[in-house]
Simulated assay, not measured.
Amino acid sequence: MTERQYYSTRIGINIGENFPIETLRELILSTYTFFEDKEYFQEAFGKTCVDAGYISGFCGSDFKGYFLRKLRKHNIWPIKDYYLEYSDNDIFDVIELLFDLISKPIEGTYHSWGECGWHYTIFDKAQGQEEFRTEINEIIRDYKEGFTLSEDGQVMLLGDKGLNYLLNAQIPNYDPQNVDNRIEVAVLKFRRYRSTFNERKDAVRDLVDILEFLRPKIKEYMLTKDESDLFNIANNFAIRHHNEKQKDNYDALWLNWIFYIYLSTIHMMVRVLKKFESKT
């Protein structure tokens, strides 16, 4: 379904980018409350019954301790008490943990006495997580450089606009050990929201290693000069090796650019190889 855009967004007045952390805090509280009101955390946190008292969920009764054990941080739970003190790292940690805890209530019994409400016994975790991802991603895509909550519940860099499709593009199955799995690891390193500059450089190095593996296979389909230029970039800019002749005074924008160049080149190489090898 195409995402709905409202008037100010459609005409470019409110593009929703680069809002401050104060806004992010309010939006995360609002999102949590939205799902809490719909009982999407009943399986995890349990329910207080007017007759039976507190009935615990799988987190037990000590929610504060549970959050401390999982996140190794104080002053996180209850969210309503501490959200105004959250850093963006705190918020991303909470998002990932809530993703693990959420589930959509499906079946149960309604307890009418004292308006106690629904006691659910069957939950759909995958559906709850998908609905949570949809709401969260509408928020964090516009925070700072842009983020996304992945299908397995990790907050990742969204990627440069116009190029982020490459980060999600599926490469044709070719060589799981030397190509396919290595690409997945490199992209994960590059997109982690806490990744350092050196970790991103390491992700580029991983892509160069894949190119090196594909190099002898692609030689007959690729111009020699084009091929050598790709490796000259990696070798001369302190990515693959380190010596006094290499250049290393460059910023993250350059590293981002070369990551996308190498990733798109690997996609191209694999498709070319698949095409020609299928004919032999």
Rank of each mutant, 00 (worst) to 15 (best):
Q170H: 08
K73G: 00
T265D: 02
K70D: 03
Q177A: 13
A126T: 11
C49N: 15
K201N: 05
L207I: 13
H267D: 11
N168C: 01
M156S: 03
I139G: 09
I55Y: 02
K64F: 00
A186D: 05
P20C: 04
I136F: 01
Q127F: 04
G12W: 00
K189S: 13
Y174R: 06
N137M: 04
V204R: 02
Q170S: 14
H111P: 00
Y82S: 04
A203V: 10
T148E: 09
K161D: 06
I11W: 03
Y32V: 08
S228A: 05
T2C: 01
T134V: 04
R200D: 06
Y165V: 05
Y32S: 09
S264I: 02
Y221M: 11
D100T: 14
E151L: 11
K275A: 12
Q246H: 04
L29K: 13
F197H: 09
D124W: 02
E130Q: 14
K80R: 13
I140Y: 01
I102Q: 06
D81A: 11
T48K: 09
H74F: 05
D175N: 15
I140R: 02
I233H: 03
K217R: 15
I122N: 10
W257F: 10
D152I: 06
G60A: 06
D160C: 00
Y193T: 09
D152M: 03
T134N: 13
E135L: 04
E107G: 01
S103I: 09
L84H: 12
F35N: 07
I55E: 14
D251V: 04
K73S: 08
M156N: 12
R191T: 14
F123T: 10
Y7Q: 07
F231Y: 14
E244I: 12
E39I: 03
S150M: 03
H111I: 13
G153F: 01
F231Q: 11
R25M: 06
V179Y: 03
L214E: 05
N243H: 13
W77H: 14
D251I: 03
F63N: 12
C59D: 03
Q170P: 00
L211M: 15
D90K: 10
F132S: 10
G146P: 02
W118C: 03
D229Q: 10
S61T: 14
F19R: 08
K274W: 01
R10I: 03
L101T: 05
E227H: 05
K70I: 08
I28Q: 10
D226H: 08
D226K: 10
K219W: 00
E138C: 07
T109V: 15
V187T: 15
L157F: 06
D88E: 15
I76P: 02
I183F: 03
D51C: 06
S87P: 02
H74T: 13
W254H: 11
H241D: 05
N75Q: 13
D124C: 07
A252Q: 15
F34V: 00
W254D: 07
K38R: 12
G60K: 06
N168V: 01
G60R: 07
V187S: 11
H241K: 07
